[in-house]
Design a protein around this nucleic acid. Structure first.
Lengths: 138, 138
DNA sequence: CAAGAATTGCAAATTTGTCGCAATTTCTGC
DNA sequence: GCAGAAATTGCGACAAATTTGCAATTCTTG
């Protein structure tokens, strides 16, 4: 289950799964990309701002979360370790962000293209902009 | 030439190509992704920071610039309208960002995948993380 | 060229992210 | 389970990044 994986990743890096970290992980679990402001607000006075920043930084460094751009600011979400690898469809009209499950062929192509440039790919983010189903009909 | 295109895009949206905007465009022209801090510093006292923020926001809204994530912060660069469509290889070791020319098949696949989700794609950004040629040999 | 609209600079206000350090929690070896 | 050591957290205080209001200036149009 997810806490075991989380704990294992942390332990492997000499960190531990504290009360607070589990709480922040829970804030991320099952949600789409969230801004720091939202996370801080959702945490209320349960967790201090500084701790949230420090935890997200740690989580990102250990590959637990991924950071993506949404418009001006960034948002964070659990990485592929905890969710299926996916990309994002950003509606430029209503602002909604929709998950798009990835496709093996697309992944292969991205890796191949990188490798041809003599680059060793480890991961990627693909953000697609356009109109969501609702807005493209309006 | 590029200023005509720029002017046309602005005009179409009821804005005009002012000295200041042309100056900021010039700061972007021919350069890779730049941080706001760099743009502000390069502008010196020619353009106020607030104006740079406002202009970049306008440019992004009109599709003149694209914003990408580099680690923690974002950077801006001219959009596909002014450069060849490309993606970025981010070396997680030395921090270098390398342009990767795109591939028609990849583009097609991305559009097709979006369309299957009933989404109308208008553009995208693909950021690949890994080791650059130099770092992967070290 | 004049009038009105858009744009810019300036300075102040917010917001966002960081840091140092003391208090608390977690981990380890009994 | 307990003591001591190490890691983590909260709490300001900071520092940096971004936004905003408004008056002065620049553009656009007729």
């Amino acid at each position: 289950m997810q806490y075991e994986t989380l704990k294992a990743i942390l332990k492997k890096n000499g960190s531990s799964l504290t009360h607070t970290r589990r709480y922040i992980f829970d804030l991320l679990w099952g949600q789409g990309p969230q801004s720091m402001a939202v996370l801080i607000s959702r945490a209320g006075d349960k967790v201090d701002r500084a701790t949230i920043y420090r935890t997200i930084e740690l989580f990102e460094r250990l590959g637990i979360v991924t950071r993506i751009n949404v418009g001006w600011k960034y948002r964070v979400e659990l990485s592929d370790v905890f969710t299926d690898h996916h990309h994002h469809l950003h509606c430029t009209n209503c602002g909604k962000v929709i998950d798009l499950p990835s496709n093996p062929m697309l992944e292969t192509m991205i890796d191949t293209l990188s490798a041809k440039a003599d680059f060793s790919p480890r991961g990627h983010t693909l953000e697609i902009f356009g109109l969501c189903p609702a807005c493209s009909r309006a």
